[in-house]
């Protein structure tokens, strides 16, 4: 944990120096590099723990999620969203769900984000355009829902405080493989699976119909 906090602190300091004194970057970069290397050498035992890597990836996930909202260029936001989805895939790996991790990358980072990229490229949004929040219920609703969500998260953290930081949910042989998941999907959860597939087909046909109607 010390290592993680130290590295995050160094990265933050480096970013601050870059932003406020653009001419002093090189010196501070050198200091930060040397300090980081010493920290890594002293705390090298932490490099082999799951906690360190999970913490690091969690930090990157939060940072990229923040940048998705805060970055003025929509294209860069899309790129950070891809990074964020990758971090989520890595979290699946930590929980031994290797099949879900691969699917997360294929479906979200691979297929859906390409469409996002495509649309933004075609519209050629250079800087943030047309995002003007008007009055109405949206702003207070967002505030209430956000507070509620933060409360739930806080409650979850308090509730689980004394448990191990990362515990694999299943230690059985073959947990999280495609075979294991297939047996569950086509056995116990068959009805939910088929219902979801019908819903998806209906949505797809509806989308095609709506798009075609505008064409004529």
């Amino acid at each position: 944990m010390n290592l993680l906090i130290g590295l995050i602190f160094l990265a933050g300091a480096f970013a601050a120096v870059r932003a406020f004194w653009p001419q002093r970057q090189a010196v501070f970069g050198l200091i930060a590099g040397v300090t980081g290397a010493t920290l890594l050498a002293v705390e090298r035992a932490a490099l082999l723990t799951l906690q360190f890597w999970a913490g690091l990836i969690g930090f990157i996930a939060i940072l990229s999620a923040l940048l998705v909202i805060l970055h003025p260029n929509p294209m860069v936001s899309v790129l950070f969203l891809i990074l964020n989805l990758f971090c989520v895939a890595l979290f699946y790996l930590f929980l031994q769900a290797q099949f879900l991790a691969a699917i997360q990358v294929i479906v979200y980072a691979g297929a859906i984000m390409v469409l996002f990229l495509f649309v933004i490229m075609l519209l050629n949004l250079r800087v943030e355009e047309g995002l003007h929040l008007t009055g109405g219920v949206q702003r207070p609703a967002a505030f209430v829902l956000g507070t509620a969500f933060a409360g739930v998260l806080f409650w979850a953290i308090l509730h689980r405080r004394d448990r191990p930081f990362l515990e694999p949910p299943g230690s059985a042989e073959g947990f999280g493989t495609a075979r294991d998941l297939g047996v569950l999907l086509f056995g116990r959860y068959l009805f939910a699976f088929e219902a979801a597939s019908i819903l998806l087909v209906a949505a797809m046909i509806g989308a095609v119909l709506l798009a075609k109607r505008r064409l004529q």
């Binding site: 099949f99 691969a102 699917i103 990358v105 294929i106 980072a109 691979g110 297929a111 390409v114 495609a178």
Partner: peptide, 8 residues
């Protein structure tokens, strides 16, 4: 699946 993921 990993091959498909990185191909995409």
């Amino acid at each position: 699946l990993i091959i498909l993921a990185f191909a995409s």
